[in-house]
Amino acid sequence: MNFTRRSKARRYVIPRLPLVAFIDVVLFLLLYFVVATSVNPPEGELGSALRTDSKGGGQAAALTPQILNVESNASGVVFRMGDRVVTSPDGLLALLQQLPKEAGIVVRVSSRVPVDAAAAAVSAGRQAGFVKISYVPGS
């Protein structure tokens, strides 16, 4: 005699999800994003203050910042501080590391030099430990 009720037998039905289509879509999405993603190099920032060469009527600062000129001559880009001239970013970094940092530094960039040289000057100032860096557009 079968005493088992039919309704109890239904408990043992295992539900199955047809996941094949879902996996297809997920793989398609993955493929799309892999193909569509452009690998951009990470970007950094060189922050600096902006100043002009105009003589304002403001009060003179207690500490006069050192002026770094970024210029070009026949041999290429040169970095000049007073009478000291260096031609490489490494030499510039070595020069800036010897200077006092409290007064800050003014980077005056000639319009004839490439942007890379301007960025190299600001970057060298940052690496040398200057906190106050001002960018001044030159002639």
């Binding site: 190099p41 990470p42 970007e43 950094g44 920032e45 060189l46 922050g47 600096s48 203050a49 902006l50 100043r51 002009t52 970024v70 960039v109 000639s110 319009s111 004839r112 030099v113 490439p114 942007v115 890379d116 040289a117 301007a118 960025a119 600001v122 970057s123 960018y135 001044v136 557009p137 030159g138």
Partner: peptide, 28 residues
């Protein structure tokens, strides 16, 4: 990086004129 700093300087002058005190140069 391959361009000259002339447009950069022109922009810096104009930004200073309208009261911008700092900027950031993007680098790779």
């Amino acid at each position: 990086r391959r361009g000259t700093a002339a447009p950069l300087n022109a922009l810096a002058s104009e930004l200073t004129r309208v009261g911008v005190k700092t900027w950031k140069l993007a680098t790779e």
